[in-house]
Simulated scan of single mutants.
Amino acid sequence: MSTVVRHTPGTLSWVDLMTPDFEGALKFYGSLFGWAFDVGPPEFHHYTTCKLGGRSAAGLSKRPEGAEFPPVWSVYFDGEDVGQIAASVRANGGQIMMEPMTVGDFGRMLVAVDPTGAVFGVWEPKNHTGAQAVEEPGAMVWHEVNTRDHKKAADFYARVFGLEARKLDVPGVEYMTLHKGQKTVGGVLQMNDHWPADIPPHWMTYFAVADLDASLAKVAELGGKVCVPPFATPYGRQSVVTDPWGATFTLMTPARLPSQSAG
């Protein structure tokens, strides 16, 4: 178990969920991941920090009444200057959905969409520096953008965040990984004809679990659904699930976690 003090700019530092059932989501994710919750003040719409062993792991809030967007897990890149990043997003074919804004003393943020249609956020940290618990059971362990044009998406993120895109040699799958120096930031997956046409490009968050089968049983017990049955990869077993309100995420028991090597 380790604590991240500061994420490297250009890497993914935070995830959060807007849900139509705030109390229900607290019960679902608290039971599934063992999270405790630090509910925020009214001026921040009770934005809640999900904590794992006293460390921040993710965010949770109630979706505004009448909102037309579905409940989704959103990803945020760490950024040193959201104003400059907004300009780079536009210069490289993306669009800004929410202009840079200040969030109290916590930091600044923006929400954008890449040229292939996937939505993402950028977080410029101040007092809130992102997830402190990562790559351990109950915490985010991987992120990938699923898109209809993986080369265009990879080029966009590489240019905006100073990343290197590398083709991953996987039979039957078009996949690229994004790198910041020695760190692997995330993946870019080509959505092929096997994907339903009505699923738009999107970012997928993976959460680590110690026992995938037990976690899938818990998802079902709590009212969620298994969308993709568990399957093995060289990196571990995984399964795509939804919570009871339709937010999709992936559960994964990695082949090896950094925290496991530390005993």
Rank of each mutant, 00 (worst) to 15 (best):
R237C: 03
A118Q: 07
K51E: 12
A67T: 13
L222T: 05
E144M: 04
S56P: 07
E221S: 10
T102V: 14
V39W: 05
E144W: 01
V209W: 01
Y206P: 04
M204A: 11
D149T: 05
V226S: 00
P71W: 01
Q132E: 15
Q260P: 07
T11W: 03
L168S: 05
P9N: 08
G53F: 10
A139G: 02
A86K: 03
A232H: 10
P196D: 02
T102I: 14
E136W: 12
R6P: 08
D211K: 02
F44R: 14
Y157N: 03
P200S: 09
N92S: 07
H7D: 06
F28D: 00
A139E: 01
F37V: 12
L168E: 06
T177R: 09
S88Q: 15
A87Y: 08
F249M: 07
C50N: 08
A210K: 11
K27I: 15
L163C: 03
E136T: 12
F44Y: 15
A118H: 09
V141W: 06
Y47W: 10
F33N: 01
P137G: 03
K167C: 06
G83V: 05
G130W: 06
Q182W: 15
G83H: 05
A57L: 01
P230R: 03
D114C: 09
G30Y: 02
G54I: 07
P258M: 03
L251I: 02
L12A: 12
G138R: 06
S74W: 06
P196I: 08
A58N: 01
G66S: 06
H7P: 10
S74Y: 05
S56W: 04
A153H: 04
S261W: 13
L189H: 07
Y175M: 04
D78C: 13
D243E: 00
K225Q: 09
T3M: 09
E135D: 13
G93H: 02
P171N: 03
K218A: 09
I85H: 08
G40N: 09
V145T: 09
G172S: 07
V241K: 00
K152D: 00
T8F: 06
Q190D: 07
K27H: 14
A87L: 13
P171D: 02
G246S: 02
A133G: 12
G223E: 00
A208Y: 06
Q190S: 12
K152I: 06
G236P: 02
M191C: 09
P115I: 11
D198C: 07
V4K: 09
V15M: 15
L178W: 02
V188R: 00
V160R: 04
M98H: 15
G172R: 07
K151I: 14
P230V: 03
G53T: 10
K225W: 04
Q84D: 15
A91F: 12
N146G: 11
P254S: 07
A158D: 05
R159W: 04
H128P: 10
H128K: 13
G187H: 08
R90K: 15
V5W: 08
G223P: 03
F44G: 13
V103W: 11
A57T: 04
R237F: 02
V122C: 14
M97R: 14
